[in-house]
Computed example of a mutant assay.
Amino acid sequence: MKTLLIPVATFAWLASVATTHAASTVELTVGGVITPMACTPVFAGGGVVDFGKISQQDLNQATGTRLPLKSLNLTVSCNAPGRYALRMRDNRDGTAHVNSEIFYGLGLDGSGNKIGVYSVKFDPKQTVAESGVQIYGIESTTGGVAWRTANSNPIDIGSQSLLGFTVTEGSTAGPSPIQVLSSTLTLEAVINAKQNLDLSHDVRMDGSATLEVVYL
């Protein structure tokens, strides 16, 4: 009986050693692609949207106040046709009084209250490519792994999801290669409820965001 126990015990010990050794190292692989493609997004008018002076008496006391819609022209020019998507980063992160990836903050008043939010909407029907063909919007919430069905419905650009454009309606294959894209965007701003703001002096709206081209 002892002659059978010795090799079994030895095997178990060796297996333990092998397992410990395997867990002592791990590999890290770093990859990526440097592409010759380069795209430049440009807002007309320097990307400045000014609502002018707004009287506090025009604000709703207990609910948000929607301001008039503003149009903003955008052109994305690339050195060659390529696949890309857009997303936007809030430079006033943490100042939006509504928690959503499509709402961006308008800064804080003198007492640290959140002034309001704004959103930027793309309309495929007001978006054209250099080819002149019909454009459809397509969105991914998985970083480009999967895409929603392309359609012509307006869509708000988010800070986490990707927004692209394709020439194929109903496609789930992602954006089409496009060299020059022109679009008229709609910006909508909502001021926080009057009761939530310190209006004892001028409150300056201070929204700022960065539009990013993501190469696919």
Rank of each mutant, 00 (worst) to 15 (best):
M1P: 07
L5Y: 12
L5C: 07
P7I: 09
A9C: 12
A12E: 00
A12D: 00
W13N: 02
L14P: 00
A15F: 06
S16H: 11
V17G: 00
V17R: 02
T19P: 00
H21T: 09
H21P: 00
T25M: 05
T25A: 08
T25E: 06
T29K: 05
G31H: 02
M37Q: 13
T40R: 10
A44Q: 14
A44W: 01
G47A: 12
V48A: 10
V48E: 02
F51E: 00
D58Q: 02
L59C: 03
L59M: 03
T65N: 06
L67Y: 03
L72S: 03
L72P: 01
L74Q: 05
T75G: 12
V76N: 13
S77A: 15
S77P: 10
S77D: 15
N79A: 09
N79T: 14
Y84P: 06
Y84R: 04
M88K: 00
N91L: 15
D93C: 00
A96I: 09
H97G: 04
H97D: 12
H97S: 08
N99G: 08
N99W: 07
S100K: 09
Y104S: 05
L106K: 01
L106S: 07
D109L: 06
G116W: 07
Y118F: 13
K121P: 04
D123S: 15
P124E: 03
Q126I: 05
T127F: 08
V128E: 11
S131I: 08
V133F: 12
V133K: 11
I138K: 00
T141Q: 09
T141V: 15
A146I: 14
W147A: 14
R148G: 15
T149E: 08
T149V: 10
A150H: 05
N151W: 02
N153T: 13
I155K: 06
D156R: 07
G158S: 12
Q160V: 14
L162T: 07
F165S: 11
F165I: 13
T166K: 01
T166A: 01
T168K: 03
G170R: 08
S171V: 12
T172M: 13
P177V: 08
L181Q: 05
T184G: 03
T184L: 02
T184W: 00
T186H: 00
T186F: 01
L187F: 07
L187E: 12
L187T: 12
E188H: 01
I191Q: 00
I191W: 01
I191M: 03
A193M: 14
A193I: 02
Q195A: 13
L197T: 04
L197G: 10
L199R: 05
L199S: 08
S200G: 13
S200C: 03
S200E: 06
D202N: 08
R204W: 01
M205V: 13
L211S: 11
E212K: 08
V214S: 04
